[in-house]
Design a protein around this nucleic acid. Structure first.
Length: 503
RNA sequence: UCCCCGAUAGCUCAACUGGUAGAGCGAGCGGCUGUUAACCGCUAGGUUGUAGGUUCGAGUCCUACUCGGGGAGCCA
């Protein structure tokens, strides 16, 4: 095996004119009598390899011709720049070695259903789309770590098995810990607060578990969350930190994943907009907006647009259905059929939105100060903006026990949610923490939590309490937002969904 | 937990009001020197999710169940 000059596809641009050897898998192939086009993937990209019958041994030519998708092989040839090729470079093949031939690879280059793909997730990870998302996820995670490391934050690894509940008690996964019931962490926040009193600026980054009965495109039961926590910080400081942080991530993706964004069909202009300052609204302001004329007009207009869109789709579908019955080549009929499936699914989505619009309008109009913002309310606010929006100062009844009440306005807490624009919704939740011992104790009791479990947490208010706060950013939601991926389950390699684990 | 939709070849989907289950992809064989989800010809591939029911006749209608998708509530 000529291994001495092994090259990765990503490095082809530096090797034009040279002979190189690639190792990878057969992604797709097209063949004719005397020429074959093999698309090879090697983890760094795709490369079209040209096999001409005249330039290789006959036996090799025919073996390559019947080589199945996802067979592994090493392939040697000369690098050429060529516009017609994926990635702009191709290989004129002189030799190849089949490492392991494959037959009947289940995932074809045609379309597949979600269930099928999730059942084959171990193989689906090789697909272009999953590969692009995986690369971007990697950039995001790397950016997260770098942002904090370069800004003086210390990484603290918080426990996964815990006795304290950070969020809602109903969404806990219980663990039988040598006979006593503990649970999987919902947040590292309480622990990371303790570390902030030692290091000043800290963050934790790990998996989080929530047994929410939420079967939506925005929920996983196991997801990754990064949670910075800072001593001596106020709400304004947190907002600034959060907007710089999110902007840094977006800029990093833009810089490192141009081609992946392009493959995914993401308009990079939307990412370029993600720059400070983000919009800042108080909860009370949001409540006014939701119940006001602006929202009524906005939703009415949206409904009009949706109805128009529906009509256009229906016209298009009718046209295609008519065409389909005419005299056409089989492949043309197939193309139309594929297009119809696509259009019908879009139509279904539009129908759902039309159906939901009045419900959302009603929910918004009847919004009562004091309630938490519903998903639809968030969506409305988020749709009204082209940049992320901070919503701050929620009523304390709607929020967690540890959030600090606004001393100027006792009914609200010093918290914030960050809503991603264009209807994407919440990606960050954060707050200034209650730092007064007595007030915190009262809140713990109010929430019906066992004070004994929170003794250590209360101690932080006893020994040198300081104003402090932090937030949590959901990694998969951020990935979904930045890649414009509709479903969060595509944003982690092996998703854990409510009641459903595939692999 | 609630509401809506669906289940037909390995995969993605067809089958008008109940009347002999059909394409493409994939697989196999053959053809084609620049293909881009290549194309063209041939071949194989099915107890229509499961269990009942209505009917002369059920993929199609009814009931239950199982599985899947979407939405609601809740959240990162």
């Amino acid at each position: 095996m000529p291994n001495s000059n092994k090259t990765y596809i990503a490095e082809l641009k530096n090797n034009v004119g040279r002979q190189v050897t690639l190792s990878g898998w057969l992604y797709n192939s097209r063949a004719s009598g005397k020429i074959q086009f093999l698309i090879i993937r090697d983890g760094t990209g795709l490369c079209q390899c040209i096999v001409e019958k005249a330039k290789v041994a006959d036996e090799l030519f025919s073996r390559l011709k019947r080589l199945g998708q996802e067979s592994s092989l090493t392939i040697t040839g000369t690098v050429r720049a060529d516009e017609r090729s994926v990635g702009g470079y191709e290989l004129t093949v002189t030799d190849a070695k089949i490492v392991s031939p494959t037959t009947d690879y289940p995932i074809t280059p045609k379309s597949h259903g979600t269930d099928f793909l999730l059942k084959h997730r171990h193989l689906h990870l090789r697909s272009q789309r999953q590969w692009c998302i995986g690369k971007i996820r990697h950039t995001i995670i790397d950016a997260i770590r770098r942002f904090f490391n370069d800004n003086g934050f210390i990484l603290i690894d918080t426990p996964i098995i815990t006795a304290t509940a950070g969020e809602d008690l109903q969404s806990l996964f219980e663990v039988d810990y040598f006979g006593s019931p503990l649970h999987l962490t919902q947040t590292g926040q309480l622990h990371v607060e303790s570390a902030a009193m030692s290091f000043g600026k800290v963050y934790c980054f790990g998996p989080t578990f929530r047994a929410e009965k939420s079967k939506t495109r925005r929920h996983l039961t196991e997801f990754w969350m990064v949670e910075p926590e800072v001593a001596f910080i106020d709400l304004d400081g947190l907002l600034e930190l959060a907007e710089n942080f999110v902007s840094f991530i977006a800029a990093d993706v833009l810089q490192n994943n141009k081609s992946q964004l392009e493959t995914l069909g993401v308009d990079s202009a939307t990412l370029e907009k993600i720059k400070p300052p983000f919009y800042r609204l108080t909860y009370t302001k949001v409540a006014d907006i939701l119940t006001g004329q602006k929202t009524r007009d906005f939703l009415a207009q949206q409904l009009e647009e949706l109805k128009n869109q529906k009509q256009q789709l229906e016209t298009k579908i009718a046209e295609l259905e008519k065409q389909q019955t005419g005299q056409l080549k089989q492949w043309q009929k197939d193309k139309i059929a594929a297009e119809l499936i696509e259009l019908r699914s879009t139509l279904g989505e539009v129908d759902t939105r039309i159906e939901n619009n009045p419900k959302h309008a009603k929910l918004a109009a009847e919004f009562q100060w004091g309630k938490d913002l519903g998903g639809s309310d968030e969506t409305i606010i988020s749709q009204m903006h082209d940049k992320p929006v901070f919503v701050t100062h929620y009523p304390k009844e709607a929020k967690a026990f540890y959030m600090k009440t606004d001393r100027d306005e006792e009914g609200v807490v010093l918290n914030f949610d960050l809503l991603a624009p264009a209807g994407f919704g919440e990606i960050i939740g954060g707050s200034v923490r209650e730092d007064d011992y007595d007030l915190l104790l009262a809140r713990i009791a109010e929430y019906g939590l066992d004070v004994e479990n929170y003794r250590w947490y209360l101690d932080l208010r006893k020994y040198g309490s300081v104003p402090h706060g932090g937030f949590g950013l959901g990694v998969e939601r951020t990935v979904a937002w930045l890649t414009a991926e509709k479903h969060i389950r595509q944003c982690i390699a092996f998703p854990r969904l409510m009641d459903k684990i595939y692999i």
